[in-house]
């Protein structure tokens, strides 16, 4: 009877239900994050516990041209890839929202790049970008556009473009499907009302579609930016950060320094220095693009 009495208490019961989720978060999220941040302030190496060295890792990284290049690369990669993912994703979503034959089938196909494991698609791109066996080079040669194979991953700028293309290919379905879901929540009668009000196709897009889609665009693009900023698998499979560190992102550099390089403390410091940028992106979308006044119910 007594135990039942304790369990009847709403607060006790609530805590009890919270416990598994809280435990999972603490063990698998908070602990590794805290450990990572702490490691960044030590000179830990693989096989040797570090001692507290304060900001020494960060001071070193500040003067490290490779780290600086990786920050630039990360921003460049994220910015260009996100712009293209948004543009292509929105375009695809608008297309799929029209009355197409085999609509369900086409939508399923669009999702394909998203469901293939990243490493697999990265290996496929590795072959597409191969210096000798690239299908792109082969095709362009056949069409007579080029006379020697393209060195996709062998020199800095082509490698940057190639990795961005692969990332966009992989990221577009997520954006497209989310935006498509958003488009389908817009009542068709709004477009009809706008058509009667005299809006052209472009004006309907500009005055109805875009504003009504903007909350979903904000959420989707925040996620897309976060995913891109922290991208690792694709780069690691395609270029390992090369050539001459031209495609090294902060995530790949952090891994390279920490695990193969053994400098756990320094790697952790690189990873930790991504946090402010990610927080900034989240805060930007939270404050800048949060729910508009018109979305809130009730009276003022």
């Amino acid at each position: 009877m007594k135990a039942a009495g304790v369990l009847d208490n709403r607060n006790v019961l609530g805590l009890l239900f919270l416990l598994p989720a809280a435990a999972l978060l603490l063990v698998f999220l908070t602990y590794p994050l805290g450990l990572g941040v702490w490691l960044g302030f030590t000179d830990a190496k693989i096989g040797r516990d570090g001692i507290w060295i304060g900001l020494e890792n960060y001071e070193f990284l500040w003067g490290d041209p490779v780290f600086r290049l990786s920050v630039f690369n990360t921003f460049f990669y994220t910015l260009i890839a996100s712009v293209f993912k948004f543009g292509l994703g929105l375009w695809l979503a608008l297309l799929l929202n029209e009355h197409l034959p085999f609509k369900g089938f086409i939508r399923a196909i669009v999702l394909l790049p998203f469901i293939v494991p990243t490493v697999l698609s990265a290996i496929a791109f590795w072959w597409i970008y191969d210096t000798q066996f690239s299908i792109v080079s082969w095709l362009l040669t056949r069409m007579g556009w080029i006379h020697s194979n393209i060195n996709f991953l062998g020199s800095p700028n082509p490698a940057r473009v190639s990795t961005i293309v692969a990332n966009v290919w992989r990221g577009v379905p997520f954006v497209a499907i989310c935006l498509l879901a958003g488009l389908q929540t817009i009542a068709p009668s709004l477009y009809e009302a706008a058509a009667i009000d005299g809006a052209t196709g472009w004006q309907r897009f500009r005055h109805i579609t875009l504003p009504l889609l903007s909350p979903i665009i904000a959420v989707v693009m925040t996620f897309s930016v976060l995913f891109t900023f922290t991208d690792f698998q694709l780069i690691w499979v395609l270029t390992r950060g090369g050539p001459i560190n031209a495609t090294h992102l902060m995530a790949t550099l952090s891994y390279q320094r920490a695990i193969p390089g053994g400098a756990l403390g320094e790697g952790a410091a690189i990873a930790t220095s991504m946090i402010p940028f990610l927080l900034a992106a989240i805060l930007f979308s939270y404050f800048g693009l949060q729910r508009r006044k018109w979305q809130q119910g009730g009276r003022d």
């Binding site: 009542a187 706008a194 009667i196 009504l212």
Partner: peptide, 17 residues
Amino acid sequence: KARDIAMVFQNYALYPH
């Protein structure tokens, strides 16, 4: 838009934003 008509819809179709 060129028919010079105005329509009132069942669900009003007001632009929510």
